[in-house]
Each structure stands twice: as C-alpha cells, then as structure tokens.
Design a protein around this nucleic acid. Structure first.
Lengths: 343, 343
DNA sequence: TTTTAGCAGTCTGTAAAAAAGAGTGCTAAA
DNA sequence: TTTAGCACTCTTTTTTACAGACTGCTAAAA
C-alpha cells in the first residue's frame, strides 16, 4: 500500500512524463510539486516506488519513468474518470453530421476524425447485426454471358459479384430462382438463411424450382457470406509512426506496424475480451509484440442491444489516458445512437 | 557531343552507381571497364562529363554520381531498349489468372504484384471506357423510409447510394421512374446519359412520367457521376519508404509522401501528358516536389482503342531503367488484353 | 597533342578521448 | 524522519585524431 505522498509523487511522475516525454528526476519533481520536503526525501520515496516496480530508470543515473505496472496502478487507483454528459454526446453527434452514402462511409469518416483529434490511430469495427435482413437479391445480365449478382441487406450495404453463366443454365431459369429468393428470403435475416443453406433446407426447396441448383447456390452463398464479413475502418493509420516511444531505427519495424493495420484479420485479433465501458490495455497487455510500446483504449458500441462493434484508439503508452478514455466513451455513445439511423 | 569513350564512361558510372549506390571514382572505373588507359585519363574525361553536368560529385574529394540530366542522357542516347515479345506477354497474362469479383480487384492485385516484383510503388488508374453502358438501375426499399439506389454498368461495377424517400414522392411513383429508366436508358453509354441530363433533355422526358423529377434526377445524376469516377489502385505503397535516395531525417516528409499516394486526386495529377510507350520522368521532371528524388515510369493501357488507363511505377532515381521499362511495357500490354475480358 | 605517374590537398567517416550535464545513493548531521 | 552535501555513474556532446578515398595539378613521356 502506498502512502498519500507516494501516490502524489507517482501521479506527478506520470503527469510530467506524459507531458514532456523525458525521464523525471527528484529535483524537477520538487519544483513541480511545490511540496515542503527536499529533493533527498523525494529521492527516498522514489526508491520505494522503484522497489514496487511502479517506476523505473533507464540507467543508473537517469530520472525515472513509469513502468507499465505503474501506468496500470495509475489507471486503477489514481485516475479520476468523469462520465460523459448527454450534452457532450449530442455535440459530438452533430459533428458527425454529413451525407454519407453508406454506414461504412460514416464509420470511416468517424475514424478519421477521432484520429485527427487525438493524433493516434483509430479503428472501428462495424457491429454485426444478427438481425441483418436480406432486402433484395438481383441478377443482372451484362454483355456476353457475364452476369452480376447483387445482394442488398437492410443496412443498405450492397455486395456484388460478377460471374459467367454456368453451362446448362439459362438466364430464364436463373430468373426463376431470383424470383423465388426474393419471394421467400427477403425479410429473413442473413444468418438464418446461411443456416438454411448449411442444413440443406434451402437446397431442397430450390430443387423444386430448378433441376441443378448447385452452381447457383454456391454463388448465392458466396455473396451472402461476403455481405456479413466484418470490415475494419482505420483512421490516422500513419499517426502510429510519430507516436512510438522510441524512434524507429530501421524502416522494417515501421513497415510491419503499418502492415499489421492493413490486415483486417490481424486487427480483429487485437480486440479485447473484457467488457468494461472503456478497456485500457498497456503495452504487452495488448498481446501483440509489435504493439508492446503502445497502449490501446477500446469501447464497444452497436445497434440496439447488440453492442458488438468496436471503437478503439492505439497510441503511445505515454498518453493522457483520462482525457482520451472520456473521448472514446463519448464517441462510442454517439456512434451507438448514430447507427440506428442506418438500420 | 560526347566521344565514344566518354559515353562508355558515363554508362559505366550509371551502371556502377545503379548497382552499388556508391559514388564511383576513377580508379574503380578503370578496373571495371578493363580499359587500356590510366585512371588519370579517366579523371580527365570525368572532368569533361562534369562540365556538361552529366555527373556530379557530392563534395570535393568524392567519386561522381550521375546527375538527373545524366540519367536523361543515358535514357535518350545510351540505353538499349528491347521490345516485349508476345510470348512474354502471354506468360504474364497467365500469372494474372485468378477469380476476381470485379475489374477493380484484378487491377489491385496486379498493382500489388508489380510492386512486389520491383520493390517499388505501383499505381494503376483504371481506363475509362467512353462506351461504358448502363446495364441496370434499381431502387430497393430498406426499412423505414430509406431507399437504396443501385446502378450497374457494363463493366460489372456496382455503384450504390442510400437516401431517404423525399417528401411528396411515393415509392410507387419512383418505381415508374425506374421502369422508365430501365426501358429507355439501359444500353446507352453513361456519358451520353450524363449529356442528356446536362442538356435538359432527360428532365423534359421524365417530366412526362412524373410531376417533379428534380429530387430523383439529382440522385440519379449523383450515382451516375460516381460510377465513372476514376479509381487509383496502389501496390506497395510502403515500398517508397525504403527506396528513397536519402534516408528520411524526420517522419514528416515520410508522412507527406504516404499521404500523397493516399489522395487519388493528387495521384491523378502525377500522370504525364506524353504519349511514349513508356514515359520515363526523372526527379523534378515529375513536377511534384515530394518526388524530386524519385523517378516515375508510366505507360498507358486500355480497352479497345481507348488507351486512357495508366500503369506506373515510382521508385528511386537510381534504378535499372531498361529492365523496369520493359517490365512495365509487358504488364501494360497484358492488362490491355485482360481488360477485354471484363467488358 | 594526348596520356601518364606522382603527389599534395580536400573531404568523409569513424574511433578515441575529453568535457559537460543530470541524477542517484549514501553518509552524517539536524 | 528529514536534510545537506558529495562522490560516483552514466549519457550526451564536443573535440581531436587519423585512415581512406578521390580529385586536380604538374611535369614528364608517348
């Protein structure tokens, strides 16, 4: 257990370091804290904090910097976190105004803005609506024997795919299938239909409409599957370059880092399992070696009850946590509200 | 006018520098060239080349490096350029095999491959087909009073946009409009229809079908316009980081460079007006200060007679020009052929 | 006139040495 | 418990020294 004075000093070290990015020494703390003890006393207290691995020194005669555990302690015991007011959320909501063609555009723009605001990298994973419904399915002939399949879902997303008319099938027979799909499947949820396909229920039904539905089913399934794929929206992908603890010695690591964010698959692995309003993970807690010298704040947002969208910030360990946690929280609430407009 | 020996030396300097990235001195040239003159003679010749600003030295007692003008001279007078054989194009064509959902996917993949092959940044601007035709236009109701407009063009591209049902319009009246569009406009080229809108011809016609077509027309026009927007496909955007002449002192310039490629608008300004098979521009010739220490090779490709697509490589000034020019040429021809599959 | 050998002079890059700065840890006294 | 003081450590910056790589010039040779 830390004494009040030790907490005060730890807080000051974190504050100073967060501001200046330089190891902070006993003398500077004394001036900063405006405390009535000498620098020697502060040095003694610092020794205690160091024994507890809350702060570290880079080398024998340098000032101290917070350790990851020190940040953790700060977050858990020292940081005072405000809650977001409804007013603030509304202001934010107004600022995300704009005429977007689709949800995805809106989310991209939001990520960009959040990144600009913080100087960090923002990422948004669109919530999956388990009730996402099929709104329409169309087959449209192009030139030659090319066709294009178009699936529209209730969130306004359009998934399309071109293909060649399979041998043995006529456009007319496909038309029949499309009519059937639109009659029977529109209004049903995508996951339900995917289940029907897996269980063989749909194939059986379609077999009544046409002899060999296999080719058609494969196509339909592919488009369906692609329509529910999670997409990652990135903002300020390049900010990560300027926010690292240490400068990059070689471009190699820099590349790896950028490539990490370019891979939706890898980004999806970064999301945390905790369910706090705002989850804060420091350095190695993220579980991705490339991000060991970064921190990640994340919150969930979503449609109606289904808060499975992710809104996250990735930046240097040294950052104003309380401010950004608040911001993220506000953005998350705003997004949750905004999403309803698109359902 | 340069003597044969001077040309030989210039060529050797460029070759050596291209290979080793180190300023080349008279002694090394003597060994390399296996020539029967002494290094002093070579020094004399180098002085001549330097007077003509074909080579430069970084400082008093360093070897020489080619100047931008030196590269230019090399390209114009010294480089022997092969032509691509049909066989090579075919091989390439096979390697771009793959099942792509749309042209855009194919182009992205090609850019990626070209970038991997060269270690440079590749960019592809999709050719605009002036005969691009409208294949279908649909309005699909979503939940609430949301609608989604979908335009399919003959290249298999789908452009969509969600919007709220404007007041005073009913879904039924819109249906009429859609039917009319599909009856009258499908098969016409997009540019033709855009002209009809500008000239007021289409509004007049639509006015017969419905009272106030303004709201509908705006929407239709917007979707139409977006469908012919040029898209830029980038490959190896990050390669630019490793290929610069000098290391980056600060991350700022590095960022600017990456942002340049992230902006389609700016990328479009980079394309040259010349109409050589492969245009090669060196440093400042590109006309973009950020790329002063890079070179850009570009070629055109396209659909049928309309070669207005661009295929380009951006990399360090110091590069094997003849090899990459050949490669680019081959890829351009392959793409031109490949495009026909998608029309 | 052209080519060559030789050498002084210039600049870079690196290594070694020196100096300056910032901070700690310990001791002994208040 | 707190404080003043000082020796010690480690980093960073500056200085100095030196080897290496070329050039440019001169004077002689071809």
């Amino acid at each position: 257990m830390l004494t009040e004075r030790q907490k005060l000093i730890l807080g000051a070290i974190i504050y100073q370091y967060t501001q200046t990015a330089k190891a902070v020494g006993s003398k500077r703390l004394q001036e900063e804290l405006n405390i009535k003890v000498s620098s020697a006393t502060i040095r003694n207290e610092m020794a205690v904090l160091e024994d507890a691995d809350l702060i570290r020194k880079l080398h024998t005669s340098a000032g101290r910097v917070p350790s990851p555990y020190g940040y953790r302690y700060y977050l858990d015991h020292l940081m005072v976190s405000r809650t977001v007011t409804e007013d603030e959320v509304n202001k934010l909501l107004n600022s995300i105004q704009g005429n977007f063609h689709e949800v995805d555009d809106m989310l991209s723009e939001t990520a960009r803005r959040l990144a600009d605001l913080t100087g960090m990298t923002a990422l948004i994973i669109k919530p999956v609506d388990p009730d996402l419904k099929i709104s329409s399915f169309q087959l449209i002939p192009l030139e030659g024997s090319q066709l294009i399949a178009i699936l529209v879902t209730s969130d306004g997303k359009v998934t399309s795919q071109t293909f060649k008319l399979p041998k043995g099938l006529t456009v007319a027979s496909l038309e029949g299938m499309v009519t059937y799909i639109n009659l029977q499947m529109v209004g049903r949820s995508v996951s339900e239909v995917l289940d029907m396909m897996d269980s063989g229920k749909l194939p059986v039904q379609l077999a009544r409409v046409i002899q060999s539905p296999a080719a058609f089913l494969q196509l339909f399934g592919e488009v369906l599957y692609r329509s529910v794929q999670q997409k990652v929206h990135l903002g300020g992908r390049l900010n990560i370059l300027e926010s690292g603890e240490q400068e990059f010695k070689d471009t190699t690591q820099m590349r790896r880092l950028l490539e990490l964010f370019d891979s939706p698959q890898k980004v999806l692995q970064l999301i945390p399992h905790e369910s706090k309003p705002v989850a804060i993970r420091i350095g190695a807690e993220i579980g991705e070696p490339l991000l060991d010298s970064y921190s990640m704040l994340s919150t969930r947002f979503g449609i109606r009850g289904h808060a499975n969208g992710i809104l996250a910030l990735v930046g240097p360990i040294r950052m104003p946590y309380s401010r950004y946690a608040l911001l993220l929280n506000a953005f998350g609430q705003a997004l949750t509200q905004k999403m309803t407009e698109y359902v």
